[in-house]
Write a protein that binds this DNA or RNA. Sequence first.
DNA 1: CCAGAATGGTTAATCGATGTACCAGCGGGT
DNA 2: ACCCGCTGGTACATCGATTAACCATTCTGG
Lengths: 350, 350
Amino acid sequence: MNKRLEGRAPARPTIKAVAAAAGVSTAAVSQAVNGTGRISEATRRRVLDAATELGWSPSASATALRRARTRTIALVVRRPTDVLGSDPHFSELITGLEGELAPRGYGLLLHLVADMAQESALYERLVAEGRIDGAVLTDARADDPRPDLLRGLGLPAVLLGAPDAGSPVPRVGLGQQGAGIREAVGHLLELGHRRVAYVAGPAELLHTRLRLAAFEEALAGAGLSPVAVRHSDFTERAAVDVTEELLALPGRPTALVFPNDSMAVCGIGTAQRSGLRVPDDLSVVGYDNLSLGRWVHPRLTTVDQQVQRVGAAAARTLLAGCGEDVPPPVLDGRPRLVVRESTGPVPSPT
Amino acid sequence: MNKRLEGRAPARPTIKAVAAAAGVSTAAVSQAVNGTGRISEATRRRVLDAATELGWSPSASATALRRARTRTIALVVRRPTDVLGSDPHFSELITGLEGELAPRGYGLLLHLVADMAQESALYERLVAEGRIDGAVLTDARADDPRPDLLRGLGLPAVLLGAPDAGSPVPRVGLGQQGAGIREAVGHLLELGHRRVAYVAGPAELLHTRLRLAAFEEALAGAGLSPVAVRHSDFTERAAVDVTEELLALPGRPTALVFPNDSMAVCGIGTAQRSGLRVPDDLSVVGYDNLSLGRWVHPRLTTVDQQVQRVGAAAARTLLAGCGEDVPPPVLDGRPRLVVRESTGPVPSPT
DNA sequence: CCAGAATGGTTAATCGATGTACCAGCGGGT
DNA sequence: ACCCGCTGGTACATCGATTAACCATTCTGG
């Protein structure tokens, strides 16, 4: 054993080795593996056997260079500080994406950034370096710079959110985004609630606006208006602060609607801490339908928006945009309320 | 406007374009940006200016091919089914990794697999394709095939867990893994608990064993032994089932220790549902110190193992293994108990 | 029996960047 | 004047795979 060679990475076989082993040219190997060109079934099999024999797979870098395709998709997560609150959301999304990407040999490149400026700069760099074939954009903003940016860069992308034909990049998401919130409000109204408050996400996010509009509209349909609306940054900290503030209001709301489940759980905790019982004294509605909500006490009433399925659909749309031949995604349905234990009849006024 | 060109991706500038713009050869450009070779400061600046002018960055594929380096690290998440329970853990880990990788131009390639067989196969493929420079291994097993596999493949890797000099790949983690659990048991004993049960993670995971050993040892130190020990698969579902079972035991435990915070929260919910008050009737300890635990009711007593810092250290170790010049990670400290509200004095026997 | 078309490959250029080997020019020592 | 060494660059092979263009056989039909 040569000391210098110890711990050295074993040299990977190249297409040349396979060609030599199969007794053909490298071109033949390439054609055999890719199913292009004209190769007899017999040599094709010889080549494939040689390839598996040597444990060869085409070098991703070489292929990427030649074909100008990396088979890599970017997912950039933008989080102001340490917003772990909205993360289970991303876990589900990633699960959905991976389910479609992995079988086709695509990889998911994950990046974390602090703000939109960094995010834009990152896309520019990734494109300039030719590192990715496409990008999944989350957290659509009302005035989102990314679709135009990526279109300008020529990078395929999908934006998560309600479908919209006019967008520079395709949008993928359940239709009738407001439906879940409308259903939630309907549910609360049926239970007799009249004083309902809304904890919203960051005002610049598109879904925040859509849901808030749906919320106000649904209340207005019953001749009511929100007790209060507060925007938040999705942190659990904010959930607690806002909840405390809302519960201290003169005409204390009897029901609270949150923009995600983590916040709803924290809201419940805050209410309980201040001596209120959920749902006896206060009803709480979440959003996302995380598995956590099914097991806490009380079990969380929430809106299921099928993030995982949306992720899968987004992946398919994106792959199609990358020239891949995939069945077009079917994404029917809409956000639906899941009624559990955190909502109940309005407390009788004492 | 030619119809065929509409919507076409704009051609990215190459090193040739930059060379032409600066009036030098491509070799000069390469040397200028890499700081290698012998280039006068004047031309160096001319080249750099031309590069920024054209918005050029070296093609990642070309560089990867030439240098056999991709500047990409893999993180493979293995989850049997849909274990979102342990995911906030990964969010923290990823945050820690990204903090070190991104500034050095490294990307994080994320993959999800169902089991160890798939995970091993995935590494083999990623290496065969030359897609990655290194890998972060989580969830160390007692008899883990990955260190030997990756060493055999010649791929730099780090395994998260207690440092261990004898391992085929470096291990990064807080020392004294059992310290947190020991502290937790000590805390419970001080509160007067004598009947403590332990909900463990999957038996095949190394940290499960370490923590369990620490748990039993700490109890033994007080002349006690666990009321019961149950293994689980980290799902919230399991948390509920196991909790129900433990609470139905003849000599019902007065304290429960869980392997992560999500499960602990679900355990609390289950106890509450069956009419027990936490911590009055039952004390609960979690693990991980997720932000969620700080806000639920009751606030969760848990063990902080600083996943984010461990992630940063792992990234540095890995980068060093990839030949990058990084300051060696410093990872002092140990898992520490964070006492909050979910633990209290043992209920007086009625 | 031969033009013309399949069939089944091969040769060589190419993708974009890197790095070694080489060269032109210039100043200085003798 | 001549050789040496230094500075500042250039030419070209190379990384591993893909692909257009081309060539050698064998069939096919008239």
